[in-house]
């Protein structure tokens, strides 16, 4: 897992558990207890996630209500006396004080207005309710997708490291195969040939990275050392410094090239994969050391 910082062999389980709990807290925002979560969930379900409250004809009703509301919103006390006959309108105004002795028209108009508002509120409530339902659903979906993305990125990270480990393990036998051909065809220098009578011995020389890596990285300091180091990446032109540089450049441009990758892994370790490879390598060795049959590869 990428977020776990396991830097050394001395791990602390309690610390790991704290990290795990921290991750869980981050995901769900607040560290609720199970009981609290259940309570929250039940409240939400009761208040908002009631499917019976959702109506398919809500929009039409809302429009109709909105239209009637617009006319009712303008309702005032004066509208009680409205008429298209001016004489009657005048008479009503004159008698208005007498009417006010018997009833309170302002209260009537207020009641009509508030009733109209309440009906609108119900519809607005439904709209808000539906929005909350959708937001809740989307929130859950986003949460799930986040976790999936996180899971996938972690797995990708792990697969990459694993692939590099496999590349590293594959590149060694390649070097083993290439060594005799290289030493025979290219240098054949007295020192190297004499000290490396077979492929096994030449593979052994790869196991001293400081000496083997330095000449190649520096472009070759002398023929003999270059001759020993080149077979990993140099090949037949072991003595040509410029040629060696050109080859290295080409390999860096084409990391998929098997020869190039073998040379780079062994010689420089500067691609960034070397670090990962070595860490995976240590994992592999730990696993195999635990299993009596040393079959660590099967477990992965």
């Amino acid at each position: 897992m990428s977020e776990f910082s396991v830097r050394s062999d001395s791990v602390d389980v309690e610390q790991i558990m704290r990290q795990i709990r921290g991750r869980i807290r981050e995901k769900r925002g607040v560290d609720y207890t199970e009981a609290e979560i259940e309570k929250l969930a039940s409240v939400k379900l009761e208040k908002f996630l009631d499917p019976r409250g959702i109506r398919s004809d809500l929009v039409q009703q809302f429009r109709a209500r909105l239209a009637s509301d617009q006319s009712q919103d303008e309702f005032t006390e004066a509208m009680l006396y409205e008429t298209h006959r001016p004489a009657l309108k005048k008479l009503r105004r004159m008698l208005n004080p007498i009417l006010k002795l018997f009833i309170n028209p302002a209260a009537v108009s207020g009641a009509i207005q508030s009733q109209s508002r309440r009906q609108s509120d119900v519809l607005f409530y439904e709209v808000v309710h539906n929005l909350v339902v959708e937001v809740t659903r989307l929130g859950i979906e986003v949460h799930n997708l986040k976790m999936r993305v996180e899971s996938m990125s972690s797995r990708l990270d792990f697969d990459e490291r694993r692939a590099r480990a496999f590349e590293g393990s594959v590149s060694r036998p390649q070097r083993l195969d290439r060594r005799p051909a290289a030493s025979a065809g290219a240098t054949g220098p007295a020192g190297s040939t004499g000290s490396q009578p077979d492929g096994q011995v030449s593979y052994g020389s790869v196991q001293r990275p400081p000496e083997a890596a330095a000449p190649v990285a520096a472009g070759g300091r002398d023929q003999n050392q270059g001759g020993q180091a080149r077979p990993e990446g140099g090949g037949p032109n072991g003595g040509n410094r410029d040629g060696g540089r050109r080859r290295r450049r080409r390999r860096r441009r084409r990391p998929g090239d098997s020869q190039g990758s073998a040379g780079l892994t062994g010689s420089t370790g500067s691609t960034g994969s070397a670090g990962s490879t070595s860490s995976e390598g240590s994992e592999g060795s730990e696993r195999s050391s635990h299993e009596p049959d040393g079959d660590g590869g099967d477990d992965q």
Partner: peptide, 15 residues
């Protein structure tokens, strides 16, 4: 997940 995904963690715990 942490035990299966972060290989080194499982290996170190196992050791």
């Amino acid at each position: 997940f942490s035990l299966e995904a972060s290989g080194p963690l499982g290996a170190i715990l196992g050791r």
